[in-house]
Nucleic acid binder design. Structure first.
Lengths: 215, 215
DNA sequence: ACAAATTTCAAACGAGCGTTTAAATTGCCC
DNA sequence: GGGCAATTTAAACGCTCGTTTGAAATTTGT
């Protein structure tokens, strides 16, 4: 019942959101001006202020438009894992829980370019030192993270809470970095992590699960 | 022999670098103006342009001043691990190599606040969509990363190259996120990962090693 | 101690930023 | 088809940005 419905937008508003999302992903929030956005979206300069109020409110709208349904899906999958385990009178497996978190994320990012843009945008927002940007994001994510953490605790009762906390932070870091499609070139080769297949999802789940479950 | 010596700076230049480093870490590069920097450093507005040329050249100087010696230390430890293993006529252990990469980094970050600032600055730079910032960083890191990757390949010959590549990307992502000291609040609690003890280093090494070595 | 080089300083430059305004245009209902 | 609200438009606002300038102050070399 943690399902949240995002607002709906007119055609003009959506064109602004799409363009802003793309430019934010490509050049960052600060480097993208309202003039660039409205120019590329072929709307008047004042359109952003008219439809969204301020630039910051536009940023929030870009974030919430896709983050809300994505998080709903993550919530749904985690619920399914926990309920299935409960019905079978066992604790959920770590890799199941990790997958419930990772699979919707990477599947979402692989659907289309707009979603890829959104992921890049989200990650730069997360990494922004400016806390006002991060706090909106984290406040939305917090209920889900809390639930995941509690589930991890019951699945790994021998791991101290502080250690488990660290491991979850490592997990989120690995996810963000992979999703941002930033990669350190190795032997001069750039390699796109988020490819068309499911190998990246499976590999990430097993990588994280191995680190999580290690004694 | 990959040792690189950074340039030396006058007292004024160092005060500018220290202040810029701190402000970049706290508010990000774009949000930090030359007026803020020179004001806080108690030097004239024109001092940055006089001593460093442009704002971008200042950013590069802030990066290179500490990244060069840090990378030298990482290189030194990795060399030691590889040479010791070679002398004992065995392949280096994965956790040894991972530790050679992680230990200098987190030890460096724990030394003082200026180093913490530098790590935050570096991570935001890494996550900046603007490629011109990232490319300088990655070009410096690349020789070391290549060496680490080659060592991982010999230690884990059964793991396909593409998979190993992914795992190294996860590793770097986890490191960056941990070093940035950004954390997702869990159960409303913010927790500082980079604490005063060695637990974070050991935990990170074992977390990453478990993911790396998993079959 | 004095001339030359280096560094600091106050002031200004043009450019670009987010936002506001008020008029022009469009879409819609009765 | 006319009246009214919603939208689009062009223009301008005040502000801050990085950078430049030329003179003043300081340091350096002999």
């Amino acid at each position: 019942m943690n399902h949240i419905t995002p607002p709906t937008y007119t055609a003009t508003q959506e064109r602004i959101l799409d363009t802003a999302e793309h430019l934010f992903a490509e050049h960052g929030i600060h480097a993208t001006t309202l003039r660039t956005i409205t120019g590329a979206a072929k709307v008047n300069l004042a359109a952003v202020n008219y439809h969204f109020g301020t630039k910051e409110q536009l940023i929030q709208a870009v974030l919430l438009r896709r983050l809300t349904p994505l998080n709903n899906e993550r919530q749904r999958q985690l619920d399914t894992v926990l309920q299935t385990a409960s019905a079978e009178k066992r604790t959920a497996h770590v890799d199941e829980m990790i997958r419930a978190f990772i699979e919707p994320t990477l599947h979402f990012a692989q659907q289309n370019d707009a979603n890829k843009d959104f992921m890049s945008f989200t990650c730069t927002m997360m990494m922004n030192p400016n806390n006002e940007f991060r706090s909106l994001f984290t406040s939305i994510m917090e209920p889900l993270i809390d639930q995941l953490f509690a589930a991890l605790q019951t699945a790994l009762p021998t791991v101290p809470v502080a250690i488990l906390h660290m491991r979850l932070q490592f997990t989120i870091g690995a996810m963000i970095f992979a999703m941002r499609e930033i990669d350190i070139p190795i032997s001069g080769q750039h390699k796109q992590l988020v490819g068309g297949s499911k190998t990246i999802i499976n590999e990430m789940v097993s990588f994280i699960s191995a680190g999580m479950e290690q004694s």
